[in-house]
């Protein structure tokens, strides 16, 4: 869809990350993505794309943007914090841990807001990891009980058959 906004962009020059964020806040997500793609700086472009996809409710898309930026070496502390948030939203503990570890390893240090957010997501991550571990333990328990129950029933059936054979009078 080529909107009036997109056509206007072609004449007035590329809008930057802030323009994309503004459009996303207005709910004009297609225009926001278009503006984001015109941002020349790769890290700022990734930030605008991730912000737009997060606000459009495309959490998987936002995570893909963050991963691509990280792999290309264009990530930023802001991106990694948002990546952790998105990963926690889709209950992906492994992904969230990867993002938080990257955030913690930033050599330049974090501002107060990002440090506080990182700490908050780390608490949420621990809670999520605990929940998932409980779930996995319950699944293992259920599988074990099923296997042991099946073995016990099989043994009982064999024992019964053996007892009947022995109890049958020989001809």
């Amino acid at each position: 869809m080529i909107s009036a906004f997109a056509l206007a962009c072609a004449f007035v020059g590329p809008p930057d990350r802030d323009r994309a964020i503004e459009l996303a806040r207005e709910g004009r997500f297609t225009d926001a993505l278009f503006a984001a793609e015109l941002e020349p700086d790769p890290a700022r472009r990734a930030e605008a794309l991730l912000y737009t996809r997060l606000h459009a409710g495309d959490l998987d898309g936002a995570l893909r943007v963050a991963r691509a930026a990280r792999l290309a070496g264009h990530s930023s502390a802001w991106l990694e914090e948002r990546e952790a948030y998105a990963a926690l939203s889709v209950r992906d503990a492994v992904w969230a841990r990867t993002a938080l570890d990257a955030l913690a390893a930033r050599p330049e240090g974090l501002g107060v807001d990002l440090a506080a957010a990182g700490a908050r997501w780390r608490v949420e991550l621990d809670a999520l990891a605990s929940t998932l571990a409980d779930r996995d333990r319950a699944a293992t328990r259920a599988r074990t009980v099923t296997i042991l129950g099946t073995l016990a029933l099989s043994a009982a059936a064999l024992a019964l058959a053996f007892t009947r054979d022995r109890a049958r009078p020989s001809p």
Partner: peptide, 13 residues
């Protein structure tokens, strides 16, 4: 429904 439809209209959705 403008906001919802706009979010659904983005690439990859």
């Amino acid at each position: 429904l403008v906001r919802l439809a706009s979010a659904m209209a983005i690439d990859g959705s």
